[in-house]
């Protein structure tokens, strides 16, 4: 589903990603962990072109992102993304937030899009909020709407960029539950997170990034139970 080869990313002089190679299979849930500044968010943002790779090759859902011939807008229709700060459209109701993409990008009818939106809102447990504005919702609720907004595009892959880092502790669970359900349904997911419990329970594979390198990867049991690299051990000692 996702193939990344020798991905480099620099901001000016500063090299953030120093050659990453990853293969992600269909329906796999991959959790990316690492200290701050390790490049994990940049890595994720490269996967839907929010950051342009400096060099290397990225292929997602059969489309080569790094090829100049690929339409980035078309590719993004298949790659959903949730942000740390939710980024719901502030001037639109919850319903309009979810239907904007289907109506404007996929050119679906309003009725069809709203029906889809209601199904998705029900799925994330917010069917009664469709007429509200984002400001009227709690952080956890906003993040669940953001997930519904991404799902409305029927993506093949979902990317999560620290989806629970901006939330109050009591709201983390509700968002993780939605993500857990999504994983069970067979969605291919790449999740950057500090929630080690989630990584262990839901992840099929854990990637440990540090200093722009993919230092270690393996099943959650391998990474958390028996990390091989010194840097992985140091990191896990600090966070667990």
């Amino acid at each position: 589903m996702i193939s990344v080869e020798n991905l480099h990313k620099s901001f000016g002089e500063l090299e953030i990603l120093k050659g990453i190679d990853v293969q992600i299979a269909n329906q796999e849930v991959v959790v990316v962990i690492g200290p701050s500044g390790s490049g994990k968010s940049t890595f994720l943002r490269c996967l839907n072109g929010l950051e342009e790779a400096t060099s290397g090759r990225i292929e997602i859902a059969g489309m080569e992102l790094t090829s100049p011939k690929t339409s980035i807008h078309q590719l993004r229709q298949h790659v959903g993304m949730c942000f740390q700060q939710f980024n719901l459209f502030k001037h639109l109701t919850i319903m309009e937030n979810i239907t904007l993409g289907p109506i404007k990008v996929l050119k679906k009818s309003k009725a069809e899009s709203e029906e889809l939106a209601r199904t998705l809102l029900k799925k994330v447990g917010l069917q009664e909020k469709e007429k509200n504005y984002p400001d009227q919702l709690s952080g956890g609720q906003q993040q669940r709407v953001a997930i519904a907004r991404a799902l409305a595009m029927k993506p093949k892959v979902m990317l999560f960029d620290e989806p629970t880092s901006a939330l109050d502790p009591e709201m983390v669970g509700e968002v993780l539950n939605v993500m857990r359900d999504l994983a069970k349904e067979g969605m291919t997911m790449v999740v950057v997170t500090h929630e080690m419990g989630f990584a262990r329970e839901v992840g099929n594979r854990v990637l440990f990034l540090d200093g722009g390198y993919l230092v270690e990867e393996g099943t959650p049991a391998e990474i958390f139970g028996n990390p091989k690299e010194q840097r992985t051990q140091n990191f896990l000692e600090k966070v667990l």
Partner: peptide
């Protein structure tokens, strides 16, 4: 970025 991420 959110708008871009849904393919707009």
């Amino acid at each position: 970025e959110a708008a871009a991420s849904i393919g707009m």
